[in-house]
């Protein structure tokens, strides 16, 4: 493969990784702006969704059916967790809410371990056939599915916030909670919806990436952390920033992976997170990406 091909190959890998991070960051940023909670358990939604779908497929369900059931279950779980753990502590200091989501993350990971054990599960690729070749670089068709989901999620969120009444309500709630309540909007219901949506989007993302990465009970934690990195790079306040942050991190990781040992690959994104937090905590591209959620 020539140099262009190699670079292109890395770029494609980066886009795939970046798409995954972007999906997590999207859920994080949306929830954060509505509830003020950075959901450290978001990564676990991916793991649970993927594992559940894999089990359903193994039990004979078709992939679309498994997808629908897993997404619905995780939406329910997300909402349930919001009601039981986030809502009762909604007036607590930020400190407590952060600890709660970390605790949820650990509990969910333990739950996954209890149910599915340590064996990785796999899901079939959505479309058959071998990799596509673009200028000598191989593209896994599943990557295109992932990027497609990113585009769909962005379009969906955009349409929801800009075009529907409920979306405008979401934004009103974000701007002014008291004001939202005055016009008859219930912030508690929005918080519930945000977590249910996060669960659904998380499950969908998990199922989309499982054919590439396999599904394991502990895949969620680092994914969640990397989603946070992407969201922080994006400034924590915009859909566009989250997507750009995710793609940037993915490409950085893809190119960086060739330079450092695989053991240090994860260290790279953590270094990025530390660097951004210590140097430019307001995010690298928040201002550029513009519009808020």
């Amino acid at each position: 493969m020539d140099l262009t091909g190699q670079l292109l190959q890395l770029l494609f890998t980066g886009f795939t990784l970046g798409g995954i991070y972007a999906l997590i960051a999207l859920a994080l940023v949306t929830t954060f702006n509505i509830t003020g909670v950075l959901n450290m358990a978001q990564g676990e939604f991916l793991a649970l969704g993927a594992l559940l779908a894999a089990s359903l497929c193994a039990a004979g369900a078709s992939l679309p059916l498994a997808f629908v059931i897993a997404v619905a279950t995780l939406a329910l779980l997300g909402g349930l967790l919001e009601r039981s753990a986030i809502h009762p502590a909604r007036h607590a200091p930020g400190l407590i809410l952060i600890i709660i989501t970390i605790g949820l993350s650990i509990s969910l990971r333990g739950l996954a371990l209890l149910i599915w054990g340590t064996e990785p599960a796999s899901l079939p690729a959505f479309s058959g056939g071998g990799p596509l070749f673009v200028m000598g670089a191989a593209v896994n068709p599943q990557s295109l599915w992932i990027l497609g989901l990113v585009a769909l999620a962005v379009a969906g969120l955009h349409a929801f916030f800009e075009l529907t009444y409920a979306g405008k309500v979401f934004r009103a709630c974000e701007i002014n909670r008291t004001g939202a309540r005055l016009v008859g909007i219930n912030p508690a219901a929005l918080s519930f919806l945000a977590f249910a949506g996060s669960g659904a989007l998380g499950a969908a993302a998990g199922i989309f990436i499982a054919p590439v990465t396999l599904a394991t009970y502990d895949m969620g934690f680092l994914l969640g952390v990397k989603g946070c990195v992407a969201a922080i790079i994006g400034g924590l306040n915009s859909v566009g920033g989250a997507v750009l942050g995710g793609l940037l991190l993915g490409i950085l990781e893809a190119f960086g992976a060739g330079l450092v040992s695989s053991g240090l690959k994860d260290a790279l994104s953590l270094l990025v997170l530390l660097g951004v937090l210590l140097g430019r905590p307001e995010g690298l591209i928040g201002a550029v990406a513009g519009r808020k959620v």
């Binding site: 753990a85 502590a89 709660i100 605790g103 509990s107 333990g110 209890l114």
Partner: peptide, 17 residues
């Protein structure tokens, strides 16, 4: 690794209640 499930659940319960 199973211990941590309980720790996680206790952490959430204590923080909430």
């Amino acid at each position: 690794e199973y211990q941590i499930i309980f720790f996680g659940i206790i952490l959430v319960l204590v923080m909430v209640f």
